[in-house]
Every structure is written in structure tokens, then in C-alpha cells.
């Protein structure tokens, strides 16, 4: 137990929580936007892969870090547009299309990676985002390391939650988006296009998912390797449910989740790691996601029109 307390009071633990949460926050916000508009986006896992690859590749090719983020976002939006076209106007099964997009995006990233670097065994590194030094705050004892030693992308992740909340709850656009996921007929009655809103939500949401993926290669690991996303996309889908489709609660979920993840990595180094096999620690994030789903599935209000295609004129 003292080991756990030691971990919890160490500044590096809290810095790790924020770092681990960042990609999850971006991708969870992306998925949340899609689902609030009525579209389940199972392309998330593959879109994170393509984002991780596109961002990394851009920087590896000699362009700037922020250009990399922009390229990752555009790549994600392209696959989002494909997902949107197939599921919104054509109303195809969101399960099938989403899984198809995940397979397509993942395979495209791997194909392009092998094309660019045919014989590489050790993945090359890029110079990633560096922690931002905030005068005053970063120099504080303990707090400076725990909270104010993050890269710009982590700050952007938190800003993203604020923006998504504001837009969803304080703007006409957000109202229309939520209505598209709850009662699409009411949206059409207002003279707005459900199709356009949903397309927009899926494209923007997919862009955010890709930035979440890009965080992995551009702020966390600094190289691209196969299977690096490793189910994070699926975990984000569980986080949306856990957060009851609300940005603030989803953020809390992502932080809680990252906390357990940071804890399990550190527990592996302690006496517990000698007794318990490391695979048990690595299972914790996935087990927690399932637990979160079980706890919240009954309580949360699911967007009423989630996974229901809207065909104008049909009642």
C-alpha cells in the first residue's frame, strides 16, 4: 500500500496521467461529436493509426510539427468523409462501414509506411513536441513537474474539451448537432439538413481522432510502429459511454483511465511486479473499459437516433 501512496504523491505520476490522457481526450471528443450527431464511428481505431502515421511522416519528411498535426487531421477528415458518405446519405450499417474504415485506414498507413521505408527494422525517430516552459508555473516545486511540464498538444487536448462543450451547449450549431442525434425530424422541420450536420460532425470528429493518433507519434513515442494504437480507439468508445455522452464527464473518464494506466506501469516496477505477471497489469485498461461500460450502460441517456440513418421523407 505504501508503494501506491509513494506513486500517487510523485510528480512524475501526475505528469504521466496528463500525457497518457491526451490522445484519449482528442479521440474521445471526436467520437463524442459523431455520436451526439447520431453516427457511431467505429473507424476510430484506424483513423488514429492513419493520424499517427501521417503526422509522423510529415515531420520525418522535414516539415514542421504543427504542419504534421494539420496533415494528420486532414488525413483523418478524409477517412471521416468516406465514413460519412457511406453512413449518412447512403445510410449503410454503421458497424460494417466503421470496421471497414478501420481496416482500410490501418492497412493504408502500413502500406504507405512500408513504401516509404522498405527495409527499416528500427523505426526512425523524429524530434517530437517538447514540454512547454510556462514562466512561473513550470518552476513551482512539485506542481511545476506534475502539471506544467506538458507539450503544447496536451494543452490543446484540454482546450479541445472546452471548445467542444461550448459549441455543443452554447451555440445554435451545437443545438442542431445534438438534435440531429436525438430527433432528426425536428431538425428538418427547422429547415436544417440532418445530412449536412451529420457529415460535418463525422468529418470534424474524425479529424480530432487523427490528432489523438498523431499525439502518439509526435508527442509521446517519436516514432511510428505497427500496432501502436493498440485498442486505444475502442477504449475511447467505452469512454464516451462512461462519460454519458457529455464532454466534461468524458474528460474525467479519460483522466481516471489514464490514472490507472500510469499506476499499473509504475506498479510493475514495485514488489507487486515481482509476484503478479506483467500481462495482468497490461490487462487493466481493457478490463476497466469493460467495467466502465457495465456501470454506465444502464444509467446514461444514449442519443435517441444513434445508429439510425435518416432518409428524408421517410417517416
Amino acid at each position: 500500500m505504501t508503494e501506491i501512496v509513494d506513486i500517487l504523491i510523485s510528480a512524475s505520476f501526475w505528469a504521466a496521467v496528463l500525457r497518457i490522457a491526451s490522445p484519449l481526450i482528442f479521440a474521445t471528443m471526436g467520437e463524442l461529436i459523431c455520436e451526439r450527431a447520431g453516427v457511431l464511428n467505429l473507424g476510430i481505431e484506424g483513423i488514429m493509426v492513419i493520424g499517427a502515421f501521417a503526422g509522423w511522416m510529415t515531420v520525418y519528411a522535414g516539415l514542421g510539427l504543427w504542419t504534421g498535426v494539420a496533415v494528420a487531421m486532414l488525413a483523418g477528415m478524409a477517412f471521416g468523409a468516406l465514413h460519412g458518405v457511406l453512413t449518412v446519405p447512403f445510410g449503410l450499417s454503421q458497424h460494417v462501414v466503421g470496421l471497414g474504415i478501420t481496416l482500410l485506414a490501418t492497412a493504408s498507413a502500413y502500406y504507405a509506411y512500408r513504401l516509404a521505408l522498405p527495409e527499416v527494422t528500427n523505426p526512425p525517430r523524429i524530434e517530437p513536441f517538447q514540454p512547454l516552459h510556462i514562466p512561473g508555473l513550470s518552476d513551482l516545486p512539485w506542481l511545476g513537474e506534475a502539471l506544467f511540464s506538458q507539450t503544447a498538444l496536451t494543452w490543446a487536448a484540454f482546450a479541445c474539451v472546452a471548445v467542444v462543450s461550448l459549441v455543443l451547449y452554447r451555440t445554435p450549431l451545437g443545438l442542431a448537432l445534438r438534435a440531429a442525434g436525438e430527433n432528426p425530424h425536428a431538425v428538418e422541420a427547422q429547415g436544417l439538413s440532418v445530412g449536412a450536420i451529420r457529415m460535418g460532425a463525422v468529418i470534424v470528429g474524425s479529424g480530432l481522432m487523427a490528432v489523438g493518433g498523431a499525439f502518439l507519434t509526435m508527442s509521446a513515442f517519436s516514432s511510428f510502429f505497427f500496432e501502436m494504437v493498440n485498442g486505444r480507439g475502442w477504449i475511447c468508445i467505452a469512454l464516451v459511454v462512461f462519460g454519458a455522452w457529455k464532454p466534461g464527464k468524458a474528460l474525467l473518464g479519460a483522466l481516471l483511465f489514464a490514472g490507472f494506466d500510469a499506476l499499473q506501469v509504475r506498479l510493475q516496477q514495485t514488489g507487486m511486479g515481482q509476484v503478479v505477471p506483467y500481462q495482468v497489469f497490461l490487462m487493466i485498461p481493457y478490463l476497466l473499459s469493460i467495467l466502465a461500460l457495465i456501470l454506465m450502460s444502464r444509467r446514461a441517456h444514449v442519443p435517441a437516433a444513434l445508429m439510425t440513418p435518416f432518409n428524408r421523407g421517410e417517416r
Binding site: W234, L282, S289
Partner: peptide, 23 residues
């Protein structure tokens, strides 16, 4: 019984099973 979406649970079980086999 509880209305938990099976897409995510079956997906996550793939990762859990892989770790269990590795152990």
C-alpha cells in the same frame, strides 16, 4: 441483461485474451 454494447466488449476481449495467452 444489462444492455451493454457487445461491439466494444468483444473487441476489448481480443486484447485481454492476447495478454492472457502471452502470460
Amino acid at each position: 441483461r444489462l444492455g451493454v454494447d457487445e461491439v466494444v466488449t468483444t473487441l476489448l476481449l481480443n486484447f485481454i485474451m492476447a495478454l492472457f495467452i502471452s502470460y
